[in-house]
């Protein structure tokens, strides 16, 4: 089975220390005012009544199996890596149009203010290439974030996923089948938004594109038909003026 990188997260272990956020920012040079990961804070009023206490929910791009961001990208600059399932961004190809930003139910993406391209968590691609774990996982003091191949029953993440009950945090209108799993109670679960496809993009797919593609196709067919007719009729079909002075009609056949 193909490698499917993901995280299994224990929200009960998270103490909201922000270590993962700081480590990520440093490791990936995330610009001021933007974040590639987060810790969602639970409801304090509810927590006061609940013996479990306040929940903190660490998260980041969920490297979804049905990524709406990939569906919103016209050029494939955002794509799902076949070898490990991580959703990546080709910075050279991306022009920063922002269609993917609104398409993410987790608002995991931002537009890099200097590079003018979309940016988000890629499970620390550079660190992984060097044989390291993602920075947030490495730095977490309570091991709330566990990273690995979800398809491998012997990886740390795979073992947890099989051994315990877990949930995905999804918006029911936009279930993207995310690859972040939460053990037990994930805490806040109502924050993912509905994925939004930009109006021009919808117009392209539903109306404008098909209409003009049909027009190109019909014109192409017309040209082929005209060419076929010309092949069949050959040089016989000439305008009457070319017979200069002669009555048109039968005398064309002389050229045959």
């Amino acid at each position: 089975m193909a490698v499917k990188l993901g995280m299994v997260i224990d929200a009960a272990s998270c103490i909201d220390c922000k270590g993962c956020q700081a480590a990520c920012k440093v490791a990936n040079q995330v610009p001021d005012g933007h974040w590639r990961n987060w810790i969602k804070r639970g409801d304090e009023e509810k927590a006061a009544l609940d013996r479990q206490g306040l929940r903190f929910q660490p998260g980041n791009c969920m490297q979804c199996d049905k990524p709406t961001c990939v569906a919103a990208c016209p050029t494939g600059a955002t794509y799902k890596e076949a070898k490990d399932g991580v959703v990546r961004i080709d910075r050279e190809l991306c022009i920063g149009c922002g269609q993917c930003l609104a398409a993410c139910p987790y608002q995991a993406r931002y537009r890099h203010p200097q590079l003018r391209v979309a940016d988000k968590c890629d499970f620390c691609a550079e660190r992984r290439a060097a044989g390291l774990q993602p920075a947030c996982v490495d730095t977490c003091p309570t091991k709330a974030r566990v990273f690995g191949d979800l398809n491998d029953p012997d990886s740390p993440a795979g073992r947890l996923l099989r051994g315990k009950a877990s949930v995905q945090v999804v918006n029911q209108q936009s279930n993207t089948d995310p690859n972040l799993y939460y053990l037990g109670d994930p805490g806040p679960a109502d924050w993912p938004v509905q994925a939004k496809m930009p109006t021009p993009w919808q117009f392209w797919k539903s109306l404008g594109g098909p209409a003009l593609e049909a027009l190109v196709g019909l014109t192409g067919l017309g040209v082929i038909a005209m060419y076929g007719r010309q092949l069949i009729l050959g040089d016989h079909d000439q305008p009457p003026e070319h017979a200069s002075g002669h009555p048109e009609g039968g005398d064309h056949d002389q050229h045959a």
């Binding site: 016209p74 022009i95 922002g98 537009r111 021009p200 993009w201 392209w204 404008g208 594109g209 003009l212």
Partner: peptide
């Protein structure tokens, strides 16, 4: 962003129109 997104769609449609 919105203007750029419309540009992408319109660029494609205009290219097809001139192709016709």
């Amino acid at each position: 962003a919105s203007l750029v997104q419309w540009s992408i769609t319109i660029h494609y449609l205009a290219a097809l129109f001139t192709t016709v």
